[in-house]
Simulated assay, not measured.
Amino acid sequence: MKKLYPLKYSDIVYKYSREYDIDPYLVFSVIKAESNFNPDAVSHKSAYGLMQVTSTTGEWIAEQMKIEDFTLNKLFDPEYNIPMGCWYIDNLRKEFGDNMDVVLAAYNAGRGNVQKWLNDTEHSKDGKNLHYIPFKETDKYVKKVKVNYKIYKFLYDK
């Protein structure tokens, strides 16, 4: 099972999960769901690298993180991609709170979509939780990351 759920890039993951106070197993779970640990992954929506950061989001994150020499190719470098992905999860958590379902939905579908869903009683009864995610891909994504997380915790959290 540990071959299917590796702790690749653990030095970088542990460093930045500590810096941004994120459970490292969540970061491994996102990487597993996003790219299956392929640093050269490119999605059909033009998201790049381990944590599948899009070029526009990458540019914005680089600006926020004060990364001055950002280029699209850096998204293929785990030394850039993982810190940027961790920063982004933390940024979403600051907006949406510690509800990981909402944070993960925003990571996948964008914060604007999630804000709309939270403001719509069809998707959120209380404006804080999503009881229905209208994008099937995002609903599957959130569930996949949560399953990955449970497996990582089971395998490695001793």
Rank of each mutant, 00 (worst) to 15 (best):
K2I: 14
P6Y: 00
L7H: 00
I12G: 00
V13M: 08
K15T: 15
K15N: 15
Y16L: 02
E19M: 12
E19I: 12
E19L: 14
D21W: 03
I22W: 01
D23G: 04
D23H: 03
V30M: 03
V30S: 03
K32C: 09
K32V: 08
E34G: 07
S35K: 07
N36Q: 09
N36C: 04
F37V: 11
A41Y: 09
H44W: 09
H44I: 12
H44G: 13
K45E: 15
K45S: 15
Y48E: 02
M51C: 06
T54V: 04
T54N: 00
S55N: 14
S55G: 09
S55Q: 15
T57N: 07
G58T: 08
G58I: 05
E59G: 13
W60G: 10
A62Y: 13
E63H: 10
E63K: 09
Q64E: 15
K66P: 09
F70M: 12
T71K: 12
T71W: 10
P78L: 05
P78H: 13
I82D: 03
I82W: 07
I82K: 04
M84P: 01
M84R: 05
C86M: 06
C86E: 05
Y88F: 14
D90K: 13
N91K: 14
R93C: 01
E95P: 00
D98A: 10
N99H: 05
D101F: 02
V102H: 00
V103Q: 01
L104S: 04
L104G: 06
Y107P: 08
N108H: 14
A109I: 06
G112V: 13
G112R: 03
G112L: 08
V114T: 02
W117F: 03
W117T: 00
N119Y: 00
D120H: 02
H123P: 03
H123Q: 09
K125M: 12
G127E: 06
K128N: 07
K128R: 14
N129P: 01
L130W: 03
L130G: 09
L130V: 13
Y132W: 09
I133A: 03
P134C: 04
K136V: 12
E137I: 03
D139K: 15
K140Q: 14
K140N: 13
K140T: 13
K140A: 10
Y141H: 10
Y141E: 14
V142L: 06
V145H: 02
V145C: 04
K146Q: 07
N148T: 06
Y149Q: 02
Y149R: 01
Y149D: 02
K153M: 11
K158D: 11
